[in-house]
Amino acid sequence: MATLGLSLSDFNRLVAEHAAALYRMAYRLSGDRHEAEDLVQETFRSAWKSRRLFDAGRGERAWLASILRRRAADQWRSRRPRLVFWGDHQPDLGRAAQDPTRDEYTDEMQEGLERLPGELRETLLLVVVGELTHQEAADLLGIPLGTVLSRVSRARARLREYLMAAAKR
């Protein structure tokens, strides 16, 4: 019989085994490495807070992914505009105003993902980046297994189409 509750050693194991995958998923969801770190941190913080609800018999990754999904939604809702330092009379200080890490992290893949409809993107990321089984993704999203399969397939096809078009440019 599965035991309820998360011990400290369980938690550390969860971090070791799932943090990387969750970070990747968070990054692919948000497109920003800082937000991704925050998301993962908030996810594990929430996991530790609700450790009594942890069911060792069920999918750990799916549990964490469901928390991540909620935190991402919270963050999206509460997102406030970034601090504006540049005013109406912007002096030319010879300084690039854009994020210097943009080229490194905002790749074509991310642009392609952003062009996907939300439900396709989310399903694809849960299955491919979050490495959930199709059934786990179906349970998490509350949709039939067949829908998950078709969404993943359609998402891959559209993403492939975008990347090939981008490669021709």
């Binding site: 938690f11 550390n12 971090v15 070791a16 943090a19 990387a20 995958a21 970070y23 990747r24 990054y27 692919r28 490495r33 770190e37 993962v40 941190q41 594990f44 893949m109 993902l113 694809l124 990321l125 491919v128 980046v129």
Partner: peptide, 15 residues
Amino acid sequence: LRDVSVPAGLRGRLM
């Protein structure tokens, strides 16, 4: 899709 580098020290912070 999975090719996203994970920042160093993330696990330590989480623990």
